[in-house]
């Protein structure tokens, strides 16, 4: 019994130490801003740009108050920032993920470098402001860079809350989210009618419905686009992992299926960033490395999608 546990603890401890070491190695923000190889894209309508790969927190950062797993997540965040990442996305619906992010930001002293994206998720809009404040407290940031209405829950009233907060300077940008390709008609209507800054939706090499209307509309309206579920919560990777990468993947320096898929997503000109979630430092490095030249052009993107479709 103890033997097994001690083996587990040693492994976790090592991970924690690695995370701490990574945090110590974290370059200062001004250095990160000059990191030449991590590509960024301008947020339409806003005078700022974001690295093409961000960090999601669904499931992966919901670790409660487990000290070993909190340190493991801090290690992931350290590697993310060290590779030039900025946008981290979470939600009150993600259990303890917000608190985990806050722990990591505090440990890494990274409050100033994160682009903090969170959500409002309540069917009782009167509770919205208190929920946002609780979220902000978990993160430990002075204010959010982006707040989104999660999955269009009570979207009219919740968006009113967010717009009022933006007007008051309590949040910088506002948006809406959907996932799994659901409610695209509603999303389209809101994108046309509401003064949004961002829309978050599911887009990857096999879930491409957004290409038809939502991505062109985002360009027309000048909205940033965050692509969630880039790997369909790992299912896409599992489906492809025993298949060989095509030789021509080398043309875009895609060394793994994860990089192949990410490069497809972020090379769409209307996508601002993709937000893969992970529990592993090596995966976050691999993901950020996908946000480097070369990216596929339109012809190669078609070829990539056809190839995956054929597998």
């Amino acid at each position: 019994m103890p033997r097994h546990l001690h083996a587990l603890s040693r492994r976790r401890l090592l991970k924690g130490l690695l995370g701490t070491a990574a945090a110590a190695a974290l370059p200062p923000l001004d250095t990160l801003a000059e990191t030449p190889r991590t590509l960024t894209r301008e947020v339409p309508g806003n005078d700022e740009s974001l690295p093409l790969v961000g960090l999601g927190s669904w499931i992966t950062f919901n670790v409660g108050d487990d000290p070993a797993l909190l340190e493991s997540c801090t290690g992931v965040m350290a590697a993310f920032f060290a590779a030039g990442g900025r946008l981290i996305d979470s939600s009150p619906m993600y259990g303890s993920s917000q608190a985990t992010i806050g722990h990591g930001l505090s440990q890494l002293g990274a409050v100033d470098r994160v682009y903090a994206a969170d959500k409002i998720w309540t069917s009782s809009p009167d509770d919205g402001p208190a929920q946002v404040e609780a979220s902000r407290s978990h993160w430990g940031v002075p204010r959010f860079d982006l707040l989104q209405v999660h999955n269009l829950v009570a979207w009219e009233a919740n968006l009113d809350t967010l717009l009022a907060m933006k007007e008051a300077g309590e949040v910088r940008r506002v948006g809406i989210t959907t996932s799994h390709g659901r409610r695209h008609e509603n999303v389209e209507r809101i994108m046309r009618e509401a003064p949004l800054d961002f829309v978050q939706l599911t887009y990857n090499i096999v879930d491409r419905e957004a290409e038809q209307r939502l991505l062109p509309l985002a360009r027309e309206k000048g909205l940033g686009v965050i692509a969630n579920r880039p790997f369909q919560q790992k299912r896409l990777i599992r489906r492809l992992e025993d298949k060989p990468l095509p030789e021509w993947a080398g043309k875009i320096d895609a060394g793994t299926w994860a990089q192949f898929i990410l490069k497809f997503i972020i090379s769409h000109p209307d996508v601002t960033c993709a937000i893969p979630a992970t529990t592993q430092v090596e995966h976050v490095r691999e993901n950020l490395a996908a946000a480097r030249e070369p990216l596929p052009d339109a012809d190669l993107r078609r070829h990539m999608a056809d190839y995956v479709q054929s597998l």
Binding site: I59, N62, G64, D66, L69, G95, R182, Q233, T279
Partner: peptide
Amino acid sequence: SEWWTYRLGDFLMFSPRVYERLFVLYNQA
């Protein structure tokens, strides 16, 4: 009707390692 488009896994909000560690830490405490 949208509910029927969700998979069981879509409702799972934590990973197997978190679930396992839940019992390990609890028993230790």
